[in-house]
């Protein structure tokens, strides 16, 4: 049987001519102009023995224009989770509100014990479903997100989810250019989960700051003002107006020409 209604019992083509079915067609499939507009670059994070350190710079770019220099891309969810957003800033704000609504709903019950609040791994699972649903609708949220915090088992937790809903977990993670430039540096310190147990908070903070510096040197969409957060069982310390320190530029004076030139 022919399932097209326009073919059912219609006048014969050889007598009445071809049936004009053009009116039945809808204009076009729905299209979503999905590409990021105002964007944030890399987020880097690393686990240490008691928690997680996460950082991202405060820049929101508009193409190559450094348009907004005070955009805080580390968003605190509750007393045990911080999210780091790379990618589109408007979608970041949307997700921020979505999670805010989730938090409001979580607090409808009077439960005041910490154990009943959403843990970092709960939040990561939730986000991965949201991101995957949106990509399946061909309308993705254009972000790459790191979830840093404390898991339901009171262990340091670090995982990522991207615009396709793909998830990863590792002792260290980085998005965007950070995946190329920062991950190798952090991996040297924590090649595996075993190594995490030997890392102090200071070591973790130092390597993250080093990564932010390398990214500033080599990522053309980065800036030197950044935010850094440390999440542990004791709570969250977040600093949002840090400046890169101990940069190395002095060697420029020894560079002359591009090969043989000496003056």
């Amino acid at each position: 049987m022919n399932h097209f209604p326009q073919a059912w019992g219609r006048p014969r083509d050889d007598i009445y001519g071809h049936y004009n079915s053009s009116y039945l067609q809808t204009a076009n499939p729905t299209q979503h102009t999905q590409s990021p507009v105002v964007t944030g670059t890399s987020v880097v994070a690393i686990k240490y023995k008691d928690g997680v350190v996460i950082a991202a710079d405060n820049l929101a770019s508009y193409g190559s224009l450094a348009r907004f220099t005070d955009v805080k891309r580390l968003r605190k969810f509750n007393s045990s989770t911080v999210l780091g957003f790379g990618g589109d800033v408007s979608d970041m704000q949307y997700l921020d509100r979505l999670l805010n609504d989730l938090d409001v709903k979580e607090n409808y019950s009077h439960a005041d014990d910490e154990a009943s609040q959403l843990s970092a791994n709960n939040l990561h699972t939730y986000l991965s479903k949201v991101m995957y649903k949106r990509r399946t609708d061909f309308n993705p949220l254009w972000n790459h997100i790191l979830v840093a915090g404390i898991s339901s088992e009171s262990e340091p937790f670090l995982a990522s989810v991207d615009l396709l809903g793909t998830t990863f977990s590792s002792p260290s993670l980085a998005t965007g250019y950070g995946a190329h430039l920062a991950q190798p540096i952090m991996r040297k310190l924590v090649p595996d989960e075993e190594a995490v147990k030997g890392i102090s908070k200071e070591q973790a903070v130092d390597v993250v700051k080093e990564c932010m510096k390398v990214l500033f040197y080599r990522d053309a969409r980065s800036m030197d003002g950044y935010s850094i957060a440390v999440i542990s069982k004791e709570g969250i310390e977040i600093k949002e107006n840090e400046k890169l320190e101990n940069q190395s530029w002095q060697f420029a004076e020894r560079i002359r020409g591009y090969g043989t030139q000496v003056n």
Partner: peptide, 8 residues
């Protein structure tokens, strides 16, 4: 409020 709809 630039093109993509983010608010600053």
């Amino acid at each position: 409020l630039p093109l993509g709809g983010s608010l600053h």
